[in-house]
Design a protein around this nucleic acid. Structure first.
Length: 610
RNA sequence: CGGGAUGUGGCGCAGUUUGGUAGCGCACUUCGUUCGGGACGAAGGGGCCGCAGGUUCGAAUCCUGUCAUCCCGACCA
């Protein structure tokens, strides 16, 4: 089993540190922000070449290969077929799927270029287009389905902001798989199989990863789950119920909002609220609770056809808007892709040639006439209301007049109860929907894998079809499944390190054992060290020999930093044939004869990488 | 792209306010002493001060432009 671009078996199972090109740093380079990034740079694993572009040094390459090998095994076991697809992709393919513009214009993330003939090409950030076309051309019958193709290679994304070393880089190694099915049920079966395979992969690599419900984002499609490596430095927020039955990315998470405080219902009235533009100010001055207020947000949505749609979003004052949910709700409402949303500012009103709006005192019933004469905006509001706002019976809201609000309002005074959408952010402490006794907790995570049920979006767009049982052409049902290989390596460091350095899980460590000869000039130490090194090699253990003429302390520090799971120190007891066996993760030390040490290592290592 | 910051040997920094021709720690080379938790001493090598203009007798330092990098927001494996 081998692959041209990613050889997985090592000709070299062992190495002398003196020949390893190991350069460790004592100082943390200023560029590195999070621990895992710092440790990888200090340990000589990676070097930055440009923003978001890194060279993988020999030790790192071994780690990446270890991960690759585990991924290949699990993918192959789950019925995957490995391929290698081109990175340079013609624009017309992306135009047919409708993604060329979205991926290249504005804040598009595809690197793109023109060749000498003036043809446009993109550098692949993902491979749905290519694979869909390829399978469409190759597969003609439902009898040939399902198939699941995967590849492991470098992807390119012109990230808006590369960050955190390999966590968000512009060039990174990814495993991506695409499955093709004759029907939805079969897609679901493979999707579930992939979910199991993913759990296997992460646990075999020694990572604690949780599967969470996710938004399917720009890639599109129906069901989708993300695999998160839990870590405080993670960029994503995850909400999990205490019973473990529900977990979701905050973008997607649903929950039951806390009950609002009842607002005792007098007659509706207008109240003076000078300078009270925010919910906080209003509450403190008027002695209200945020849950008694309907807050109205004026926003602008950018639609794929270039139209600009003003929005009025109503949400309860104690709740926060989830923009991902809003975009999805809008896309459903309009039937067109919503590219982006942002708050409307006074400046924008001026440039549209509109009169001032009572921002800070908006009510859900702000008249469409405020949009009259807008230079490029649609001149009717699209009004959306979150459950929490729509369900209030008596509330305070803006009076559509500066420095005035209305007290004791109800929806019938505003033209009826609006349609309800789920637009709010689920938060730490909310109750879960499946069991109202379960509180949701917030954790941070690093997204290392994502699986999607794409459905027929791409196969329809690219007219990629097979002949079904009835003899009729039908677009494929598709799934797609990604794992960030290089990101995973860094996530492993984020999850497994201490003050002294990295503590690699043994399955993905660049070497399993490091034999440190404390004093290379001591003949008996040298002889015993070499003997151990040989013996471990003979037993197929991946072993490093630190034979450098450094002082012992330097070698210990380096061994801790680079994080080899087992360390054998050949030192002052070498004369009597004794060595120390140290476990990196907990610093546990055993004084053993060299034979015992070899035996212990064989036993422990074979048990831990089964 | 918006907001903030920084560019000085491989890495970490000082010097910039108040212009006078570049310094410290780590790393590197050689020698000696040391030798189980990043040793010590001595001697050395390495920098067009991000780049381009300008001001000046003279610019790392002042001015203008530009590029790059990092941090905070929108994107994602």
């Amino acid at each position: 089993m081998s692959d041209v671009s990613f050889p997985i078996s090592y000709a070299v199972k062992s190495m002398r540190v003196s020949r390893l090109m190991l350069v460790t740093l004592r100082d943390v380079p200023a560029e590195a922000e999070i621990t895992s990034h710092q440790l990888l740079v200090r340990g000589g694993y990676i070097r930055r070449v440009s923003a978001g572009i890194y060279a993988y040094m020999p030790l790192m390459w071994r780690v990446l290969n270890k991960i690759t090998k585990i991924v290949q095994q699990e993918m192959d076991t789950a019925g995957g077929l490995q391929t290698l697809l081109p990175q340079l992709q013609p624009a017309d393919l992306w135009e047919r799927s409708g993604r060329w513009k979205a991926y290249t214009e504005g804040e598009g993330i595809m690197f793109h270029l023109k060749d000498r003939q003036g043809r446009e090409l993109g550098l692949g950030p993902t491979h749905e287009e290519i694979i869909t076309k390829l399978v469409g051309e190759t597969i003609s019958s439902y009898r040939q389905l399902p198939i699941n193709l995967y590849q492991i290679q470098t992807k390119f994304r012109d990230e808006i902001r590369p960050r955190f070393g390999l966590m968000r880089s512009r060039e990174f190694i990814m495993k991506d798989a695409y499955s093709f099915h004759a029907n939805e049920a079969d897609l679901k079966a493979t999707y579930n199989k992939m979910k199991v395979a993913y759990q296997q992969i992460f646990s075999k690599c020694g990572l604690i990863a949780v599967a969470v419900d996710a938004d399917s984002g720009a890639i599109g499609g129906a069901a989708s789950q993300e695999f998160m490596v839990t870590a405080d430095s993670g960029e994503d927020l995850i909400l999990t119920s205490a019973d473990g039955k529900y977990s979701a990315n905050q973008e997607k998470a649903v929950s039951k909002a806390a009950e609002p405080l009842l607002l005792k219902g007098d007659e509706p009235s207008v109240i003076n609220t000078p300078g009270q533009k925010s919910v906080e100010e209003l509450c403190s001055k008027q002695l209200l609770n945020p849950s008694q207020i309907v807050k109205v947000l004026a926003m602008l949505a950018l639609i794929e056809d270039g139209k600009e749609q003003p929005l009025l979003i109503s949400i309860r004052g104690d709740q926060e808007l989830n923009e991902v949910k809003l975009i999805n709700a809008l896309t459903n409402q309009i039937g067109k892709l919503v590219i982006g949303i942002n708050s409307i500012t006074q400046d924008q009103l001026h440039s549209q040639g509109l009169r001032n709006w009572p921002l800070g005192s908006l009510g859900p019933d702000l008249e469409d006439s405020y949009l009259n004469g807008a230079s490029s905006w649609n001149n009717e509001f699209l009004r959306l209301s979150d459950h929490t706002a729509a369900e209030l019976n008596c509330f305070v809201c803006g009076a559509n007049e500066i420095d005035k609000h209305r007290n004791h309002m109800n929806w019938s005074l505003l033209g009826g109860v609006p349609r309800k959408f789920d637009l709010r952010k689920a938060k730490d402490g909310d109750f879960s929907l499946h069991n109202p006794n379960q509180k949701l907790q917030e954790t941070r995570g690093i997204e290392v894998g994502h699986i999607f049920q794409l459905g027929r979006k791409y196969s329809k767009a690219l007219e990629s079809s097979f002949t079904n049982e009835a003899g009729k052409p039908e677009p494929f049902w598709m799934g797609c499944y990604g794992i960030g290989i290089s990101r995973m390596a860094q996530a492993a460091v984020e999850q497994h390190h201490d003050e002294a350095g990295i503590c690699w899980p043994i399955a993905i460590a660049p070497f399993q054992v490091i034999v440190v000869i404390a004093n290379i000039k001591d003949a008996s130490q040298k002889v015993l060290g070499e003997k151990l090194y040989q013996a471990l090699q003979t037993n197929s253990i991946e072993v490093l020999l630190d034979d450098r003429p450094e002082r012992a302390g330097v070698k210990f520090k380096d061994a801790d930093l680079i994080g080899i799971p087992w360390r054998v120190v050949v030192g002052r007891d070498a004369e009597s044939g004794k060595v120390e066996l140290i476990k990196r993760s907990n610093k546990e030390v055993q004084l053993l004869s060299s034979e015992e040490a070899i035996e212990a290592l064989i036993r422990k290592i074979s048990a831990s990488i089964k």
